[in-house]
Design a protein around this nucleic acid. Structure first.
Lengths: 114, 114
DNA sequence: TCCATATTTCAATGAATATTGAATAGATGG
DNA sequence: CCATCTATTCAATATTCATTGAAATATGGA
């Protein structure tokens, strides 16, 4: 993962409403939720939600698909795993004994990978 | 962990130089590095580095201590673990079978905890 | 004390971001 | 085709943030 991509993802998460959306979608899992329902749950306007969902999607943290009139959003768990792995890469000079096995982080919600 | 605290930490990481510092300090581990050396490695001014280190420290991602003339910075691995756990809390409605055990994330660099 | 080292603080500038409401676009059913 | 539902786009505004260089603070040695 490139640094610029990680920054985009972190910036997407570093905002009150988007973080709330992200956590809602993490809890929801792959079935996802329609934009309108997310907006209602979070408590912001439709246009505001559209803006924030676009940020999250552009950062690769969520994906979307249309189903009839509604557009559903769900977390992209594999990219989340990549982000977390990036953050903790080479922990403690590659010696997990110093601070615990940070490599375990890379196994979040999916098979491990470089 | 509160949402506002998580946002502060994520915002601290969502910046080119601070993310580079964070990853450098993650790799370095508990011995830490002095501010000047970090600035030299990253390639920015001393005052700029001071600004960024203050942001990281205020977010709880790093800690600092003085040793003679130098001020050392090291990652606060336990708070990093808390942040990652916060991001992946209640993954997939608490059913790890859906997307893998995201709870494993909470065991980064330290004993597990609520 | 005087000087050099190491880092922080401060103020000013320029750039990036969130919010709002109105307008637009796409999908569905009558 | 029309009305409606759902969601996005756009422009304007206000806020927040990063960078710069100069000045200030703290430490340690001569």
């Amino acid at each position: 993962m490139e640094s610029t991509h990680a920054i985009k993802a972190l910036a997407a998460l570093a905002q009150e409403h988007r973080l709330a959306v992200f956590r809602l979608l993490v809890a929801q899992g792959p079935t996802g939720l329609p934009a309108g329902e997310i907006a209602k749950t979070i408590g912001i306007s439709a246009s505001g939600m559209s803006f924030h969902l676009a940020q999250l999607e552009h950062a690769g943290l969520v994906r979307s698909w249309r189903r009839q009139r509604r557009i559903y959003y769900a977390v992209e768990i594999e990219n989340v795993r990549r982000l977390l792995a990036f953050l903790t890469q080479d922990c403690c000079q590659g010696r997990p004994d110093i601070c615990g096995d940070i490599g375990a982080l890379a196994q979040v919600c999916g098979p491990e990978e470089a």
